Amino acid sequence: MASGRPLSTAEGFLCGGVAASIAVTVSNPAEVAKTRLQLQGELAKSGTQKVYKNALDVLGKTYKNEGIRGMQRGLGPAARRTVPYAYQILLNGSRLGFYEPFRRNINSLIGRRPDEQLASTAVLAGATSGAVGASLGNPLFLIKARMQAYSPALPVGAQHYYKNSFHALSTIFRAEGVRGLVRGIDAAILRTSMGSSVQLPSYNLTKNFLVSRDILPANSTWTFLASSAVSGVCVCIVMQPADTALTRVYNQPTVVGPTGKLVGTLYKNPIDCLWKTAKTEGLRGWYKGSTAHFLRIAPHTIITLTANDLIINLYKKIRDRDI
């Protein structure tokens, strides 16, 4: 990092949010494909007819039937972009901005040096910062997943049509109140905590390995790229089952339950979703859309973490220029 005082939590939050906003523009088409593959054949035995063969088939059919607008569902035209990018700032700003303060404080609590790199405290800090980000961004992630699942041409799973992000938020709030906006928050926390528990620790451990053995210099873009590539693979492997559960819990239809409140018709919670998926579709059901997930998470992780380091270095040079 550039010289000068360490970033404050607020500075880290903003830098991380900007980096993630750049990444989501590139990775969104793959996330649309991932979402639709995860919903295809939901709770159905093997042998059922498939709408999509694989990730590339989803992208090809989506572009053919829905154009660029379909490929970028969840981002939409300029008037709708504020909510998805706000989600990236809330989620990844929290994960990247809170990670280092959490890790340092946890180290201090157990009597270790704040700057010491420990795998255990890194994983715990990653999971905790991920849980914070997931909680803050849940309503926006909910509507993004539903908008990505919607296809007027080749629908899979339950279909929720919203004109734009703000229409989605108001529709859900009118129908279910605040409860509707926090639907699936347990699945979001599980998914993001699992991903965050390995993303930043694997990134930092890989970077430290490359630098400490003089394989690559500390502030090289190649160091950031190599470290984030390894991190992307780790995240995809660990997070995929929880990501599938999140998509399905978010997208499931709802009915009025015995208490008069809207409840999901398919799943009670993410664990129930994983159990029913494994029981009906086998463990392979947890990894539906894993290729699309990798195509989404690899560039997203690489761009987010590389851009985050580059943005931090640039920001610190500008900030500390007159010091």
Results as ranks from 00 to 15, higher is better:
S21N: 10
S170I: 11
T223P: 02
T291A: 13
V132F: 10
G157T: 06
Y161A: 10
A188L: 02
K50F: 10
G70E: 03
P84Q: 09
Q199E: 15
A30S: 12
T121D: 04
A19W: 01
I89V: 15
V26K: 02
S231Y: 03
A229C: 11
A86D: 00
K261T: 13
H167G: 08
I106E: 03
L305H: 13
A122F: 01
Q72C: 10
D115R: 13
Y150N: 03
P152Q: 12
R95W: 05
L59Q: 00
L200M: 14
N138P: 03
N92C: 13
Q159R: 11
L205V: 11
A78M: 08
N313G: 13
T121E: 05
R81A: 00
G16A: 09
K207R: 15
C15D: 01
L75R: 00
M239S: 10
T206K: 04
L314Q: 10
P139E: 08
R146L: 03
L274C: 09
S46G: 14
S290G: 02
I172P: 00
Y63S: 08
E42I: 06
Y87T: 06
A10C: 12
V18W: 02
S193E: 01
A30H: 04
N251L: 07
T128G: 05
D186C: 09
S197G: 13
A292G: 06
